[in-house]
Simulated assay, not measured.
Amino acid sequence: MPSFSMPSRRRVAAAIALAVAVPFAATACGGGGGGDENKIVIGTKFDQPGLGLRNPDGTMSGFDVDVATYVAGELGYSPEQIEWKESPSGQRETLIQNDQVDYIVATYSITDSRKEKVDFAGPYLVTGQSLLVREDNTDITGAASLQNNKRLCSVSGSTPAQKIKDEYPGVQLQQYDTYSACIEALKNGAIDAVTTDEVILAGYAAQTPGAFKIVGDTFSEERYGIGLKKDDTEMRNKINDAIEKMESSGAWKEAFDKNLGPAGITAPTPPQVDRY
């Protein structure tokens, strides 16, 4: 058996301690993004005013951002400990499955197909598909009035675009990569209306007061949830507790009114979370 000097023994002990500690650090809460226990990584949209928007100075704003920040606070993280990660619609499940985020709050509709890949806390908001037109438009009053060969814009591969294809075949549907591109086309007259969830449209309307208006009733139901790792029941329950506290405390309505009220949308009754 080889003999070890005292410094050698200390080095061996330190190496063993490090080897044991590393796996635990890597799996700590806040692991989405590298295992730093002093931060939490939250996914959201960076290009949706009123919901999830990265401002020119690098700060984040919007209803989804406020909900995500409140939840993080209930989990023990201050706003300064949040790392925001952009989460485009088509990448959300992958970001969660690959541990790149701890959870996602990004106009993320709860669907059965998505629940096969990730879990959801919530819902924290129920909305529906609607229409945005220019302020001076008088001939588009709802989905039925689109049938007369109106030019409608939505995002490629989105649920709203598919619904239009399935239920309103008389519409000239144009699909862009982003809603901001649709808004620009609406502004310059290239299209007649934009369709997606009402709260998303409200954010764009509020960003340019007097330019656009939302018309007609909603014609779908979208239940927004907070996406997280599949089968992480403990985390889902903690997030659901935070959502319920935000709703009952009045902070939920305050956040809604601040971010989406300027578009003329009245805060709805907060939805009951689903404890599945």
Rank of each mutant, 00 (worst) to 15 (best):
residue 71 V to Y: 02
residue 71 V to C: 04
residue 73 G to I: 04
residue 75 L to Y: 00
residue 75 L to W: 00
residue 75 L to I: 00
residue 75 L to P: 00
residue 76 G to Y: 05
residue 76 G to S: 00
residue 78 S to Q: 09
residue 81 Q to R: 06
residue 81 Q to Y: 05
residue 83 E to A: 12
residue 84 W to V: 08
residue 84 W to P: 02
residue 85 K to L: 15
residue 87 S to E: 04
residue 87 S to T: 07
residue 88 P to H: 07
residue 89 S to D: 11
residue 89 S to L: 14
residue 90 G to L: 10
residue 99 D to C: 13
residue 101 V to H: 08
residue 102 D to E: 10
residue 104 I to H: 02
residue 104 I to T: 02
residue 104 I to Q: 01
residue 109 S to W: 12
residue 111 T to S: 04
residue 113 S to C: 07
residue 116 E to V: 05
residue 117 K to G: 08
residue 121 A to I: 02
residue 122 G to W: 00
residue 124 Y to G: 04
residue 125 L to S: 07
residue 126 V to Y: 13
residue 127 T to K: 05
residue 128 G to N: 05
residue 128 G to K: 06
residue 132 L to R: 03
residue 133 V to F: 06
residue 135 E to H: 13
residue 135 E to T: 11
residue 137 N to E: 15
residue 138 T to I: 14
residue 138 T to L: 14
residue 139 D to E: 14
residue 140 I to T: 12
residue 141 T to I: 10
residue 146 L to Y: 01
residue 146 L to W: 01
residue 147 Q to S: 15
residue 148 N to G: 14
residue 149 N to E: 11
residue 151 R to K: 14
residue 152 L to M: 06
residue 158 S to Y: 06
residue 159 T to S: 08
residue 164 I to S: 01
residue 166 D to A: 12
residue 174 Q to V: 14
residue 174 Q to S: 14
residue 177 D to M: 15
residue 177 D to N: 15
residue 178 T to H: 10
residue 178 T to E: 11
residue 178 T to M: 09
residue 179 Y to E: 13
residue 179 Y to P: 06
residue 180 S to W: 09
residue 183 I to V: 09
residue 184 E to F: 07
residue 184 E to V: 09
residue 187 K to Q: 12
residue 189 G to V: 06
residue 191 I to E: 05
residue 192 D to T: 01
residue 192 D to M: 01
residue 195 T to V: 00
residue 198 E to H: 12
residue 200 I to H: 07
residue 205 A to S: 15
residue 206 A to E: 10
residue 206 A to M: 05
residue 207 Q to H: 11
residue 207 Q to E: 14
residue 207 Q to D: 12
residue 208 T to C: 10
